[in-house]
Design a protein around this nucleic acid. Structure first.
Length: 356
DNA sequence: TATCCGTGGAG
DNA sequence: TCTCCAAGGAT
């Protein structure tokens, strides 16, 4: 393995095949002296954490249209940012996004630091994201290791150690290949390679720029790598929620606490979610609550959720014991995380009949 | 180190 | 239907 030659062959491949992405400066533009906007690089990297490019695209476009600069984002109301993030998942990212924007605005004069350690100290920025911003936005020679890089390294070096234990080994191997020239393009090139050629299933080894050097391909074990430790089975939790509506169209909602599952998001009042039978919960307001036929099913990272949904038409003067009324004009189900939006769908749309 | 934290698409 | 997975971070 000749490190310099491998980096060069990958960069040549990237020059010809780099994906066109809304937050990316193309290799030709970069060579022409165009510098990336660190704000856009940061925003894209946060959105892309454990999230596909396809899912991020529209969110990125909308965020940058609403808030073109980090100062603009820092000045945005929390509720609006949470509503715009709704549906993208991992809501701690949205809360940390605002924290970070405000720190950068207030303590860094609106400029992201061009320094790995300083970036790492910011909310929502961990080792990967700090390296990615340093490399992509500032062209610093950082070692950038994400899921793509882990997969690519495990294959070209045929690392049989299962993840996540293999992480340090894979990081060292990634470091051994990272060039001093064009580190920003190189970081994006390895990730593009992992996303388009060295894919988890059916890697396209025949057109890979690293096919000659790849140990896994030589030994025909590429489909089995990287190995992963077995995961835990998902339990099923049950709960009940209450969707209360006033005749003027206002709905009874609550803001979930900042910490924990769906932290800081808008939702329907309800019970805790537990394994076994759904825990009983008091309605958030007095009323004639009736349970809807059917149920809401949703799967989170580490458990399945089954929700019973109760609805009520509430009198105009109702004073809720929990939550608050949101006027019809101020409510959109798309402002809620998916599980809550599914519950609203069930309440609004009659359950499909067996005959269709 | 292990657990918690979403979502939608692919196969 | 079900499992896996995608540019991880915080605790």
């Amino acid at each position: 393995m000749c490190e310099t030659a491998e980096a060069a062959s990958l960069l040549a491949w990237y020059d010809a095949h780099a994906r066109v992405l809304p937050w990316r400066v193309s290799p030709s533009d970069r060579k022409a002296g165009v510098a990336p906007d660190p704000y856009r690089v940061w925003l894209s990297e946060i959105m892309l954490q454990q999230t596909t490019v396809a899912a991020v695209r529209d969110y990125f476009t909308r965020f940058t249209a609403l808030w073109p600069t980090v100062e603009a984002l820092a000045a945005a109301p929390d509720e609006q940012v949470m509503a715009e993030w709704a549906g993208l998942g991992y809501y701690a990212r949205a809360r940390n996004l605002l924290k970070c924007a405000r720190v950068v605005t207030e303590e860094y004069g609106g400029r992201f630091p061009a320094d790995h350690a300083a970036l790492l100290s910011l909310p929502g920025i961990g080792p990967y994201t700090a390296g990615a911003i340093a490399a992509i936005a500032f062209d610093l020679p950082e070692v950038v290791v994400d899921g793509n890089v882990e997969r690519v390294m495990s294959r070209i070096f045929r690392v049989e150690t299962p993840l996540p234990a293999a992480k340090p080994e894979l990081t060292a191997l990634a470091r051994s290949l990272t060039p001093a020239q064009r580190p920003g393009d190189y970081a994006q090139a390895v990730m593009d390679l992992g996303a388009t050629i060295c894919t988890p299933r059916n890697p396209a080894c025949g057109i890979c720029p690293w096919r000659e050097a790849c140990r896994a391909r030589k030994d025909t074990v590429q489909a089995e790598l990287p190995r992963k430790s077995p995961r835990k089975a998902k339990p099923t939790r049950h709960g009940m929620i209450f969707i209360g509506r006033r005749s003027d169209g206002a709905v009874l909602v609550e803001r979930r606490p900042d910490k924990g599952l769906l932290g800081g998001t808008l939702g329907w009042p309800g019970s805790d979610w537990q394994e076994g039978a759904a825990p009983k919960a008091l309605p958030p307001a007095a009323g004639d609550w009736r349970e809807l036929p059917g149920e809401v099913r949703h799967t989170f990272t580490h458990f399945h959720l089954v929700l019973r949904v109760l609805v009520a038409d509430l009198p105009q003067g109702t004073v809720p014991e929990r939550g608050y009324f949101l006027e019809k004009s101020a409510f959109s189900p798309s402002d809620m995380p998916t599980a809550m939006r599914k519950a609203h769908d069930l309440a609004v749309r009659p359950a499909p009949t067996a005959s269709g």
